[in-house]
């Protein structure tokens, strides 16, 4: 039995026991807590507007923002034509967009919200291959207000086509695709989506609450902040013009900014289908910077199918 203490079997069992206990406390125990978190309106809005997965997935292998739902703002019922006041958000999944993580696994949205979404919202009748429209509805359970996901195609008879037509192009927002741009362009290496509980809320707004993320993937909290927190940026600044200039060249509106230029998100053509001459723009901008001209060159209007549009949609609609 000499040297028993050094034998590798005993040691391996010890390593397993120690690591097992550690994982039991840090993974198994919290899983019960995570499981009981109920989704808020913010959480439902995120899971419905983002689609299944942001980032690499089957439906979007090149991470170009394909297979994502379209979020629309409705001010009248597409079926009856009745006015809806205040306007509500509807989430249109075409045949190519797989259902969001929350709808796919209702327990992700929390035990009660998941149950309500199945019983009242009939989300179990939706499937990946058919177009479907979702809304977020409120209901009263034991005197408390709960939000759940409503399958509007089944419950309200809204077809995807009718909803898109009723809303019109100006009320359609590519939120899921916009968040994809946020992820692929690495915005989250400098901006966080997690105001801190101690100080930040006075400047950057409230930290997220429990239930604000259910069904979101990835959460992209970010950890290395070199720029302002963005979780509520649209509540501080909702100007589309400012966003457009700032994304094209941040130093047009904020001379001391160290943010990269995201002019390449405009693609090849502007809103009128005219080719954008980037080298000319940069030359004119350099003249402006060196003081040769008084005004900076005009920022081209982005095309509706450009990545810039999706990103601005996401910023203005989702980060409030």
């Amino acid at each position: 039995m000499a040297g028993q203490f050094q034998k590798h079997k005993l040691g391996a069992a010890g390593i397993g026991g120690m690591l097992g206990l550690s994982m039991c406390i840090t993974l198994f125990f919290p899983s019960f807590d995570f499981r009981s978190g109920e989704s808020t309106w913010v959480g439902l809005d995120k899971t419905l507007s983002n689609g299944r997965v942001i980032g690499f997935s089957y439906e979007d292998p090149l991470v170009r923002g394909e297979g994502k739902p379209t979020t629309v703002v409705l001010n009248k019922d597409p079926k009856t034509g009745e006015a809806i006041d205040p306007p509500i958000r509807a989430y249109v999944y075409d045949a190519k967009a797989p259902l969001s993580a929350g709808v796919r696994h209702p327990s992700n949205m929390g035990p009660t919200v998941g149950k309500l979404s199945i019983e009242k919202g009939k989300i179990d009748q939706a499937n990946d291959s058919d177009p479907v429209v979702f809304t977020i509805e409120a209901t009263d359970v034991d005197g408390e207000e709960w939000h759940y996901v409503n399958n509007a195609t089944v419950n309200n008879g809204w077809t995807a086509e009718a909803v898109l037509n009723t809303a019109g192009a100006e009320s359609q927002y590519l939120i899921g695709r916009g968040k994809t741009v946020y992820i692929t362009e690495g915005c989250w290496w400098c901006h966080t989506l997690l105001p801190e509980h101690t100080q930040d809320w006075q400047v950057f707004g409230t930290p997220p609450f429990l239930g604000d993320f259910n069904g979101e993937m990835p959460t992209a909290f970010g950890s290395d902040r070199k720029a302002p927190d963005l979780l509520h940026v649209a509540a501080r600044n909702s100007s589309k013009e400012w966003m457009t200039m700032h994304f094209f060249n941040p130093r047009l509106v904020q001379p001391n900014s160290i943010m990269p230029r995201f002019d390449y998100l405009w693609g090849k053509t502007d809103a009128n289908g005219k080719a954008i001459d980037f080298s000319k723009w940069r030359a004119e901008y350099n003249d402006y910077v060196s003081g040769k001209t008084v005004h900076p060159p005009e920022v081209p209007e982005y095309a509706p199918e450009s990545e810039a549009r999706a990103l601005i949609d996401w910023v203005l609609m989702s980060l409030r």
Binding site: F34, V53, F213, N214, G215, E216, T219
Partner: peptide
């Protein structure tokens, strides 16, 4: 989270785990 499509806070926690 990527392999089994785990989402939300679970995903955020496992990322930092």
């Amino acid at each position: 989270p990527e392999l089994f499509n785990l989402t939300g806070l679970t995903e955020g926690y496992l990322t930092f785990w």
